[in-house]
Design a protein around this nucleic acid. Structure first.
Lengths: 221, 221
DNA sequence: TCTCTATAAATTGTATACGATATTTTAGTA
DNA sequence: TACTAAAATATCGTATACAATTTATAGAGA
C-alpha cells in the first residue's frame, strides 16, 4: 500500500471511529509532523477526504472534520435506503455457504464488539458488513459508493446518534443472513429496508443548534 | 468560482466532450503552462479527476484520460439503471409547469444540437438533462452521484459508443416530459429504465482488444 | 539494417520557501 | 475594567527546487 493511502486510511479511521469528532480541526503542520511527511503529502489526503465529505476545507482556514447538516444526514440514509435493498437480488445470485459462513463470522464479531462496548471495532464491523454485502452484488461502482455512504453514516452517527447505539437495536445482522440462506429475496429486501429506515429514524435531529443561533429570538421577552 | 474549480471544469469538459480521447496523456508541465499556474495547482485537479475516474494516474508515469474497461462501462450503466428510475416518484412530487418548461427548452436545444452534429453541446445537454432531473428529486447526495455517472457515461460513449449516437436513438427526452406532465409515475419510470437499457445495449463491447493480447493463442496453429 | 546499450531529455514525487490570510496575544486608552 | 488597535504568531496557498524515475535518442556492434 502506498504511503499516501496509508495516511488516508489512518485519518479516515480516526474520523469514522469518532476519535476525531465532527468539527475537530486538522492543521497540516501537526499532521505532517505526526506522519513524518511534508505538508504536500498531507494536503493531498485532506483534499481527498474533503471530496468524500469527511472533512471540510475552508479557504485560508484549513480542514476540519465535517459536521454533517441534518439535510445531509437524511440524504445519506435515504440514498442507502434506495440502493441497498435493490442490491439483494444480485447478492443472492452469488450467495453460497462460503459467503454465508464469512458473514456469520463477521456478524458474531460485530455483536461481541458491541456488547463489550468496543466502539471503534463495532463501527468498523457494521460498515464492513454493509459494504462487503454490496460488493457481493458484483457491481464495483455501486459497491464503492455504498462503502462511502457507510463511512459517512458513521460520521453522521457521531453527530446525531443516540449514545451507545452505533448500529441498530432492531435485531441483528444475522437475521438478514437467515433470510439470505433461505433464498428469500423479498423478505431480505424488506429486512434491509426496515433496518436502514430504523437507523434513520433513530437519529436525533431536533434543535441541536443547527449552524446559526438566533440571539435576537433567544433573548427576547 | 475558484481558479482550481475553473481549471477542473475546463479539463473535465474537454474529456467528456471527447476532445481529450481515452488514453490521452496529460503532462503536468503542458497543463500548468496552458493554464498559467504552477504544477501544484494542476496536480490538485488531476488528483480529483482521478478519484472521480476521469483520469488514471500511474506512479511516476503521470495522468492520462481513463479508458474505461468493459466491466466498468457496464457497471456505470447498471448503476444508473438501478437508481434513476427510482428517483421518478420524488421528481414527480416537485414537478410543476415551470419545471416542465425548463426541461422542454433543454430537450429542444438538445435535439437541435444533435441534428446539427454539435457533438460537444449534444453531450453536455444530454448529461445535464439527466443530472438536473436527478437534482429535482431533492436528494443532493444522489444527484451528485448521478452527475458523476452521467459524465462517466459520456466518457464510456467515447470509448464504446456507436459513432454519431451520443445520446439515444430510442425517441426523445421530450417523451419522458410528456409522461411527467401527465403525472404517470409508472410509465415515466419504465421509460427511464428502457432508455438507459437501450443506451447500455448500444455499446460496442466486442473484441476491441481488451488490455491483454494473448500472442500465444493468437499465433498457435 | 537491426538490436542492444549508454546517455540525454522529459516527467513526476516530495520537500521547502515565501508571501498572504487568519488568529491570538499584547499593549494602550477611555 | 472593558474595549480597541496593533503587533506577533500560527496557518494556509502557491511557486519553485531538486532528486528519482521513466521515456526518448544516439551510437556501437553484430
Amino acid at each position: 500500500m502506498s504511503n499516501d493511502e496509508n495516511i488516508y486510511r489512518q485519518i479516515l479511521k480516526a474520523i469514522v471511529e469518532h476519535q476525531l469528532p465532527p468539527g475537530a480541526r486538522l492543521p497540516e503542520d501537526r499532521l505532517s509532523e505526526a506522519f513524518g511527511v511534508s505538508r504536500t503529502g498531507i494536503r493531498k489526503v485532506l483534499q481527498r477526504l474533503a471530496l468524500e465529505h469527511f472533512v471540510v476545507i475552508e479557504k485560508n482556514k484549513g480542514a476540519q472534520v465535517n459536521h454533517p447538516s441534518k439535510a445531509e444526514a437524511l440524504e445519506v440514509l435515504d440514498s442507502r435506503i434506495l440502493i441497498e435493498p435493490q442490491l439483494i437480488p444480485a447478492v443472492l445470485s452469488h450467495w453460497n455457504s462460503a459467503q454465508s459462513q464469512h458473514f456469520r463470522t463477521m456478524a458474531i464479531e460485530e455483536k461481541r464488539a458491541e456488547e463489550s462496548n468496543q466502539l471503534a471495532d463495532s463501527i468498523q464491523l457494521t460498515a464492513r458488513f454493509h459494504y462487503e454485502l454490496a460488493t457481493l452484488s458484483g457491481n464495483k461502482v455501486l459497491a464503492s459508493f455504498i462503502e462511502q455512504l457507510c463511512y459517512r453514516s458513521s460520521l453522521i452517527l457521531a453527530a446525531y446518534g443516540t449514545r451507545g447505539s452505533v448500529g441498530c437495536d432492531c435485531g441483528e445482522h444475522s437475521e438478514l443472513l437467515d433470510l439470505l440462506d433461505q433464498g428469500n429475496a423479498d423478505k431480505a429486501q424488506n429486512w434491509m429496508s426496515h433496518h436502514l429506515k430504523h437507523i434513520k429514524s433513530s437519529l436525533i435531529l431536533e434543535s441541536k443548534s443547527e449552524e446559526h443561533i438566533d440571539f435576537q429570538q433567544l433573548f427576547s421577552r
